[in-house]
Design a protein around this nucleic acid. Structure first.
Length: 266
DNA sequence: ATGGTCGGAAGCCGA
């Protein structure tokens, strides 16, 4: 029996938060860490710290100033096809194969701007197009025995209790019905299983992101579940635990996202 | 109904 723990975290600049990510790795010891919004080109990725802590296997898809994704691992990684969605030159996807043949995909879905109307807001149109392209890609994949894990900042909080107020959020980008429909299609396209909600009942509030704009994020607790971990039907039953590292949101100079962690038994 | 805060790059844009 093998155990693998995989964490996912929108770090909002890996260079600014290099000490924070170092502390996270030492305290939580995930085998694999998937990062979003690294905001750095591959040449300038701060790989030394990761290597020093034993995370010697690194697969990058970086970009200057915006977006950027990375997988760092203390287990060997085999890089696999990285897809450029929407032909925009954005670095929003990176993938690798883990020992045992587990296909790992790390996504950073566009946030979509403020106005939830694709006719007048091209960022929202981009978000919907990105989700549609994900769904079409997954629909074309050979099914279903494959062992796959999808993680990332999907920038959609699909369930009523994935936001602090369902009613007040219905017209707010990240919780509008059209985005949720698109995300549901992505999920159904490969039969993805929502790991968090296997462990946290849907009627229980569950967040991974808290805005910087709150005077006191913990007291107001107006969070959203934007970060997700999904497994394919071939890994049904493998997840042993799911955890939000909520305390990390309270560390000095934090990211606005907390890491999420799954432990798989293989 | 509004504005509140970050990060990177450059004197604003995206989240």
């Amino acid at each position: 029996m093998t155990q693998i723990s995989i964490a996912s975290w929108n770090i909002n600049s890996v260079r600014l938060r290099i000490d924070t990510v170092s502390r996270f790795l030492q305290e939580y010891q995930p085998d694999v860490l998937c990062l979003q919004e690294t905001k750095v080109v591959n040449d300038q990725f701060p790989d030394k710290m990761f290597r020093k802590l034993g995370y010697e296997h690194i697969v990058l898809n970086g970009q200057k100033a915006y977006h950027g994704v990375a997988i760092v691992s203390r287990l060997p990684l085999q890089p696999s096809e990285t897809r450029e969605f929407c032909k925009k030159g954005d670095s929003r996807h990176v993938a690798a194969v883990l020992p045992g043949g587990i296909d790992l995909h790390n996504f950073y879905v566009p946030a979509g701007g403020d106005e939830p109307d694709p006719e007048i807001n091209e960022k929202f149109a981009h978000k919907l197009a990105f989700l549609t392209e994900m769904a079409e890609w997954f629909e074309a994949w050979p099914q279903k025995s494959a062992q796959r894990v999808l993680v990332g900042d999907l920038n959609v909080a699909p369930l009523e209790h994935d936001v602090w107020s369902h009613k007040q959020m219905l017209k707010i980008v990240s919780h509008t019905p059209v985005e949720i429909d698109h995300l549901n299609r992505v999920q159904q396209a490969a039969g993805w299983i929502d790991v968090a909600r296997q462990f946290i009942p849907p009627e229980e509030k569950h967040y991974t992101w808290w805005s910087y704009r709150a005077a006191d994020w913990l007291a107001s607790n107006r969070g959203r579940r934007l970060d997700h971990i999904w497994v394919s039907p071939g890994l049904e039953g493998a997840p042993q635990s799911f955890q939000v590292a909520r305390d990390v949101r309270g560390w000095p100079q934090p990211s606005d996202h907390a890491p999420v962690i799954v432990r798989l038994k293989l």
